[in-house]
Computed example of a mutant assay.
Amino acid sequence: MEQNIVRPAEGKLGIMVVGCGAVATTFMTGVLMARKGLTKPIGSMTQYDKIRVGRGDDKKYLHYKDIVPLAKLDDIVFGTWDVYPQNAYQAAVYAEVLKAKDIEPVREELMAIKPLKAAFDRNYAKRLDGDNVKDCKTRWEMVVELQKDIQDFKRQHGCERVVVIWAASTEIYVPYDEAYHKTLAQLEAAMKSNDREHVAPSMCYAYAALTEGCPFIMGAPNTTVDIPAMW
Rank of each mutant, 00 (worst) to 15 (best):
R127A: 11
R161P: 02
W166Q: 12
T26G: 02
V6N: 12
F216L: 12
L116A: 04
T170D: 14
P85V: 03
G21M: 01
K137Q: 05
E96F: 00
M33A: 03
T25P: 03
L62R: 06
M218Q: 15
G213A: 07
T170F: 07
K134C: 09
M33F: 04
G11M: 05
D195H: 09
G79P: 01
G37L: 11
Q47M: 11
D135S: 12
R55S: 14
D49S: 12
F120A: 05
G19E: 00
P115Y: 08
W166E: 04
K154T: 11
K59T: 14
M16D: 00
D152P: 04
D177W: 05
D75S: 10
F78K: 03
C20F: 00
K72R: 13
P105A: 04
P221G: 08
V77N: 13
V144E: 13
D226R: 14
N123P: 01
V225Q: 12
D121Y: 13
L73V: 09
A9D: 09
N132L: 03
D135R: 08
A125H: 03
A200H: 00
V6M: 14
K59V: 13
N194A: 14
I113D: 00
D66T: 05
T39W: 02
D152R: 14
A208F: 01
F153Y: 13
R107A: 05
K101R: 07
R161V: 01
L13V: 00
L62C: 10
K154F: 05
K65C: 07
V93P: 07
V106C: 00
P105G: 03
E109S: 06
P115G: 09
G37I: 11
K134V: 08
D58G: 14
D226I: 10
A206V: 02
N222F: 05
G54Y: 09
L73F: 12
Y84K: 14
Y176R: 02
C159L: 08
Q47Y: 08
G130R: 09
V53E: 07
V164G: 03
A92G: 01
V144Q: 14
D177L: 09
Y205G: 02
G19Q: 00
H63K: 09
M142I: 03
D58Y: 12
I42R: 12
C136R: 01
V23Y: 00
K50T: 15
W166I: 03
Q156E: 15
